[in-house]
Amino acid sequence: MESKPFVIPETIHPIRAEIDPACLGADIKTLCTSALGWGAAGTAVIGPEDLVFDDKRLRTMATKTDLDSMSTCWPLAYPIDEIKKALFAYDKGIFLYIDVNIDLPDDGDNPEHNKNHLAAYRKIHEIISAVESAAFYMGHYLAMGFAAGNCRSVFCMEEGQCSAATVAKGCTAPYKSRPSMSAAGIDPLKTAWKLHLPQPDPDRPFLSGLVMVA
């Protein structure tokens, strides 16, 4: 990360039964500032209604019921859970992006060997992870983060296949890997356009992430 890493608060307060909307708004603002400090180039406060879904992709996920072939690419098809329904249960979130000054060709499921490419994907994962953790310790324990790219190429380069895709085996990078927004059925570029962010240029790589907070 470019700036100081995430540090948990000295005192952690008990979880509240109900979140005060004013308090949530203030916490989101703090998280946006922190994200910029951790290396994000820009942030925007987002509501679930601002998310632009790629319904074709969601339909594909919904029809995937074979647990054995869950994880060729994040996310796993969630056979009995509906990600869109979960996302719409959130009140607010933080959409953020990083500056990428290199070309990022789509390597699909293949391991990412280019150090510069890897650094860019790692950076977005680390910022999302930090923002999600910070939200958690503020008492927003359902905070959920989405990064960019295929996590196998970032965290499991040496593995022949995704361990989480094998029945009865778990993820080799638990608590670190995040699904990309695209893999959750969200179109990041269209979402960024909807938020009127200055960055998105369809001809340039756009690495963005999302942390939904409740």
């Binding site: 969630y78 993820c171 638990p174």
Partner: peptide, 19 residues
């Protein structure tokens, strides 16, 4: 009961998710 709670076992993945 909240769909987000189950997703928190999977995003990010808990070490036991799928095991």
């Amino acid at each position: 009961v909240d769909p987000r709670v189950r997703f928190k076992c999977m995003i990010p993945k808990c070490y036991m998710s799928g095991r």
